[in-house]
Computed example of a mutant assay.
Amino acid sequence: MRAFTDERDWAKFHDPKSLILALVGEVGELAELFQWLPGDEAVQRAGVDPLRRRVGEEMADVLAYLVRLADVLDIDLAEVTKRKLESSAVRFPAADFHGEAPEKA
Rank of each mutant, 00 (worst) to 15 (best):
M1I: 01
R2P: 00
R2W: 00
F4L: 03
F4E: 06
F4A: 06
T5M: 06
D6R: 11
D6S: 06
D9P: 06
D9A: 10
W10I: 14
W10M: 15
A11I: 01
A11W: 00
K12S: 03
H14S: 08
H14Y: 03
H14K: 04
H14Q: 08
D15L: 11
P16N: 07
P16C: 04
P16W: 00
S18T: 02
S18N: 03
L19G: 12
I20F: 10
L21K: 15
L21M: 13
L21F: 08
L23C: 06
V24P: 13
V24N: 14
G25N: 14
E26R: 07
V27P: 13
E29C: 03
L30Y: 11
A31G: 13
A31D: 11
A31T: 03
A31K: 12
A31E: 12
E32F: 05
E32V: 05
E32R: 10
E32S: 13
E32A: 12
F34Q: 04
Q35P: 02
Q35T: 04
Q35R: 10
L37T: 05
L37K: 05
L37R: 07
D40L: 08
A42L: 06
A42W: 08
V43Q: 13
V43R: 09
Q44M: 04
Q44K: 11
A46P: 07
G47H: 11
G47K: 10
V48A: 04
D49H: 14
P50L: 04
R52F: 01
R53V: 02
R54Q: 10
V55S: 01
G56M: 10
G56E: 13
E57D: 14
E57C: 11
M59T: 14
A60S: 15
D61I: 09
L63F: 14
L63P: 15
L63D: 15
A64N: 13
Y65N: 05
L66P: 11
L66D: 13
L66G: 14
V67G: 05
R68K: 02
R68I: 00
R68L: 03
L69G: 11
L69A: 09
A70D: 04
D71A: 00
D71L: 00
D71M: 00
V72P: 00
D74I: 00
I75W: 02
D76Q: 05
L77C: 01
A78L: 01
T81W: 01
T81M: 08
K82E: 03
R83E: 02
K84C: 00
K84T: 07
L85K: 07
E86W: 10
S87R: 13
S87A: 06
S87G: 07
S87L: 09
A89P: 03
A89G: 07
A89W: 11
V90G: 03
R91Y: 04
R91S: 04
A95V: 11
A95F: 05
D96H: 14
D96C: 11
D96F: 12
E100R: 15
E100G: 08
E100T: 15
E103L: 12
K104Q: 13
K104N: 15
